[in-house]
Design a protein around this nucleic acid. Structure first.
Lengths: 194, 194
DNA sequence: CAGATTTGGTTGAATAACCAAACAGCATTG
DNA sequence: CAATGCTGTTTGGTTATTCAACCAAATCTG
């Protein structure tokens, strides 16, 4: 049993990972932070890879977006929540970015990250579809819009992490304006092909 | 002298980094790939960190965006070039993403990455300013737009790397549509503050 | 112009760590 | 007397970086 111990390790792992980063964090460091024997970490988590994925899951599930409103109101609400998240949950964001990088060459972590990305984007796509529905616009465009909005949010996250003085509020406001005005415009892709 | 050797090491480092990723790549691996003694790598590059930054510089400088056209035409052209880059230079992109992650907890790499990000975003901001100028719109908005466009491009890059079947062309077309329609709209930030 | 000396490039081994994972065994509890 | 939770050590590697020595070509010297 002792789900406490498991969680204690997860919390300690997050603390150490936030302080030192993935590649400077050893199982030993985590065990010490959790005040627990080194072997116990491997008792609960088969490998370091599975541990860090569990940590990501742990810190993300903690604060899932509440949701509630629908259509454009819901979208605006989501943008506002993202604004706050951008400044307050930097450790979680940093872990996310880091694991994306590691996952590019690590099968296990790569698979985990892929699921996270997919799930996040789906969430945005749902909101986009609602807005398009409300406007009676072509719902097919939800996929492309969601891809761009997710992408922009990730990129804004990165900028905020790389240079903390970055004005992420301004960027998100601009993104909100861009995505909503894109919904109005009837041309899905006004770019000349070829 | 022997700038050849230096470049041979850079090329070998890129090869190995692309194959194995930053944290599974040792100086020894690179030396072997370059067919050179291990000590020589440290003769040319003081540390592993400075080496990988030099590699990023090396592979990025190789294909700088040509530029040429101005205003909206230049912007559309840049979007098209990005489309191609997204599929053809995946190794370079993967290295970029990876180093962003590593740089979050490594001072040396972090400083290098910060410069890269800043330079890239500035380039986009220049284009945005041109378009705004052409439209006789408020040039102040260039900064916010550039932040979002850079962010979106990075995020699209990530999605393409994480799931190769991702339709990055569609995403970039959507992004182009969004950013150009944002230029027309007169409200910089229609989101309710607070 | 022959010999000495410096220089820049290069080598391979030594250093001084560090690590994930496996393991054997000790408690505590049901 | 299991079984679950937990411990501390061992195993079998790995690593970046330093260092003394080597060599060939360039430069200097007499």
């Amino acid at each position: 049993m002792s789900a406490d111990t498991r969680e204690k390790i997860l919390q300690a792992a997050f603390t150490v990972l936030s302080r030192q980063g993935y590649e400077n964090t050893s199982i030993k460091d985590i065990a010490e932070e959790a005040d627990v024997a080194q072997g116990l970490v491997h008792y609960y988590f088969k490998s370091k890879q599975l541990l860090v994925l569990a940590v990501l899951e742990y810190v993300c599930r903690k604060v899932e977006v509440g949701g509630g409103l629908e259509g454009e109101a819901g979208a605006l609400r989501a943008f506002e929540e993202t604004k706050e998240m951008m400044g307050s949950r930097t450790d979680t964001n940093a872990l996310y970015i880091q694991l994306i990088g590691v996952g590019l060459h690590d099968k296990v972590i790569g698979a985990g990250v892929r699921e996270f990305v997919h799930r996040d984007r789906m969430h945005i796509e749902d909101i986009a579809r609602e807005v398009l529905h409300q406007r009676e616009a072509d719902p097919t465009r939800a996929r492309g819009i969601a891809a761009v909005v997710w992408a922009a949010m990730l990129g804004i996250m990165v900028q905020k992490l790389v240079e903390p003085e970055f004005n992420s509020d301004e960027a998100i406001d601009t993104l909100a304006a861009m995505s909503l005005s894109a919904v109005y415009s009837s041309t899905p892709a006004p770019v000349a092909e070829r």
